[in-house]
Amino acid sequence: MTADGSRDSTGFEEFARVNQRRLYRTAYLLCGDAESARDLTQTTLAKLFQYWHRASRADDPAAYARTVLTRTYLAERRRRLRDFLAHSHVDAPPSVVGPELTVTLLTALSELPPRARAMVVLRYWEDLGVQTVAELLRCSESTVKSQCSRSLAALRARLGDRHLYTTHS
């Protein structure tokens, strides 16, 4: 990473190579399919490179990247909604593949609104605190708590039986 914030791509490449896999996994949980996750990760990295002089100066560039990823995801969802309103031809989302628990989780996540989904992923996958999630999503801490509580209940209801089966059999 370029400590002086120069536009040297070497520092960016080093950062991106180390962090792309982690970003991709978060994107996978947000998007629910590999193709969209790759696109989101790539867009995030491109935006980071565009503003690398700023990103490289951040206290925690990885957190900066996570913020870019989440906000890009939410912006993309808003754009899709506009397209839906405009053209209202929406193909079925790609079917989820993988082990049963993964399929159940990703299906349950897909039923959450985008912001609620982002909150859950940031809170329970990225292990961020309520305050950090609230700052990242520009909302109040009580909103994060209430949304996460509701989302967690919904996810638990979907995952519960499956989890008991896999852990106790």
């Binding site: 991106a16 190579r17 792309q20 896999r21 991709y24 996994r25 978060t26 996978y28 949980l29 590999a34 996750a37 790759r38 990760t41 790539q42 990295l45 993988g98 082990p99 628990l101 993964t102 159940t104 989780l105 990703l106 859950v120 992923v121 329970y124 996958w125 292990d127 967690l152 996810l155 638990r156 995952l159 989890h163």
Partner: peptide
């Protein structure tokens, strides 16, 4: 949920160098 997310994320298809 954490465990399920970890399993799902670990099982994500491979990522080419982006």
């Amino acid at each position: 949920v954490r465990e399920a997310m970890a399993e799902a994320a670990e099982g994500a298809p491979p990522l080419p160098d982006l």
